[in-house]
Each structure stands twice: as C-alpha cells, then as structure tokens.
C-alpha cells in the first residue's frame, strides 16, 4: 500500500509550451501558406475567367450555334446539347454494366480463381489509364467494324469505357460497406443469394453507387482528350439528333474557341468555361447531398 501512496503524491506535470515555440509556428504557417496558395490560384483563375466571359453569359450562349465569322453572338448550343446527349448515353451504358460487374465481383466471384484475380488487378490499373487511350481504342474498333467514328455513339462508348472501372470500383466499395449481418439475416430467412443482393445489399448500396457514378460522369463531362479523336473537333452548327449524328461537346468547343485569335472568341470561351464549371459544381453538389442524406450509418 505504501508504494501506492507514494505514487499518488507525484504531481501532474505542468502544461508545456506545446505549439507555441518558433518551430511549430513556422510549420503551421507553412501549412497555411499551402492552403492559401491553392485557394488563391483557383480564385484568380475563376475571377479572371468570369471577368473575361461575363459579357457573354447571355441567352445567345445557350440558344445560338457557333460561328466562324461573328464571334460576338456565337453560342454553345450544339456543344451543350452534344454534351447532354453524350453524357446521358455514357451513363446509360456505363452504370448498368459497371454496377452489374461490381455486384458480380463482390458478391459472387470466387476470389481464389485466377481469372477473377486477374480482373481485380486490372480493374485498378484500368482506372489509371490515360483517357486518350480509350479514345484511340474506340476509334480503332469503330474503324475496323466500319462504323463512322465521328458520331455521338462512339464518343459515348469511349467515355463509358473511361469511367467503367471507376463505377465498378465505387460499386464494390458501396456493396462492401453493407454489413455482413444484413446478408446473413436475409439468407437465414430462406432468401436466395440473388434475392439478398436485389432486396438488401443493392438498395443499401445505392447512395454510394449514385455518388460515385455522378462523380465519374462529371469527370466524363469535362473530358476532351478521347473525343478529339472521335469527331468532337469539328465545326458543328446543328443539333445532334441521334446516335449516329455528328456532334461536339463543351470542353472541345471551348478548346476550339480558345485557339482563335479574336478577343470575342476568347470571351465566349470564358463564358462557356463558366457554364461548364457551374454544371460540374451542380453535379458534385448533388453527389455530396446524396451521400450525406441517404448514407446509412450501421
């Protein structure tokens, strides 16, 4: 008991200076500088773009086609519609395929089989493949089967291939987050594995899948590289009207305008950039809202 008594008499150490010494202050200052630098660069870019393009953020931007001769009233109508059509088509191809593949890999695939392991390794690698490669692949395939490559369908296929690995990985993450107890509870009641996926696992994973898919689509929306090879880079002054129609998309239209020397083209390019940023912001916000509102806490 004596030793216990003497232990209790050792006073607690006084509070040390902690974060107040010069080294710590410099370090924290550096961290702040890093954050400020990043935010400032972005702010300058945004403000500059806005100032450049503000006069052209008008109705013409949405309703008129581009023009080679009168840049003052040129609009991005064809590009907006093209982007919308390509993205919808991309989503229609990539999401069902990606979700199905994710479900298979997570719930049914036997990970001890060599082919499933190869698929797993390659999925992660595929997500890091440069976008232009998907463009070249699609162009090559289109050429070899005699499909014109400068059409909406080919653009959407390239973008779908681009985001497919991301959607598969997102789906797997979301499905893995559903607790094993839920599956077991369902199976123990006599549900089949397929019923369990369909009625328990997948519904619980939908918010995660939706969030990931929207983020992937917003990446596809801003992507220009693969579409350069697939006909996005042409002068389009008509609405895309189907899968086999010629088209252009916003990032490529911006690229096109920004190459021109007249100031008016630069201005409309800036306006289109603002438009695209707003679209991306909306999509990303939507993704965050879905994640926060519907995410289940187990």
């Amino acid at each position: 008991m004596a030793s216990l008594g003497s232990l209790a008499t050792v006073p607690l150490k006084a509070k040390r200076e902690g974060d107040k010494n010069a080294k710590s202050i410099v370090f924290v200052g550096l961290l702040w500088f890093a954050v400020l630098f990043a935010v400032l660069c972005l702010a300058v870019l945004l403000i500059d773009t806005f100032l450049d393009g503000r006069t052209r953020l008008d109705g013409n931007l949405f309703t008129r086609y581009t023009s080679e001769v009168i840049p003052e009233t040129a609009g991005a109508r064809a590009a907006i519609l093209g982007s919308a059509l390509v993205i919808v088509l991309t989503a229609a191809m990539a999401i069902p395929l990606g979700v199905a593949a994710g479900i298979y890999l997570e719930e049914f695939a036997d990970s001890r089989r060599w082919y499933n392991r190869i698929i797993e390794v390659n999925l992660t690698n595929l997500a890091a493949v440069p976008a232009i490669v998907y463009g070249m692949l699609t162009a090559g395939v289109a050429l070899s089967i005699g499909l014109p490559r400068r059409i909406v369908l080919c653009g959407a296929i390239a973008l779908a291939l681009l985001i497919l690995p991301v959607i598969i990985l997102t789906t797997r993450e979301a499905i893995r987050a559903v607790p094993q107890e839920i599956r077991q509870g369902s199976l123990a009641l006599g549900a089949t594995p397929l019923q369990t996926v369909w009625r328990q696992t997948l519904p619980s994973a939908v918010p995660g899948i939706a969030t990931g898919s929207i983020l992937a689509l917003s990446r596809a929306l801003g992507e220009a590289a693969p579409l350069l090879l697939l006909g996005g880079l042409v002068f389009v002054n008509y609405d895309p009207n189907g899968l086999f129609s010629g088209y252009t998309v916003l990032p490529i239209q911006i690229f096109n305008w920004a190459q021109q020397s007249q100031l008016a083209f630069q201005q409309v390019a800036s306006a289109a950039i603002m438009l695209m940023l707003v679209l991306l912001l909306i999509m990303n916000t939507l993704a965050i809202i879905i994640r926060n509102r519907y995410q289940k806490r187990w």
């Binding site: 607790p179 107890e181 839920i182 077991q184 509870g185 369902s186 123990a188 009641l189 006599g190 549900a191 089949t192 019923q195 009625r199 328990q200 519904p203 619980s204 289940k296």
Partner: peptide, 22 residues
Amino acid sequence: FQKPNPFPKSIYDNVAYGPRVT
C-alpha cells in the same frame, strides 16, 4: 444472431420480408 440485425426497412417490412422472399 448475436447482434440484432434488423434490415434497414420498416418494422412491418422486416417481418414481411421472409414470407415475401420465400
């Protein structure tokens, strides 16, 4: 099971789940 594992559904749907799937 050891840990209560209700489905993320209503009380009614939790009970009706088994009869429905089987």
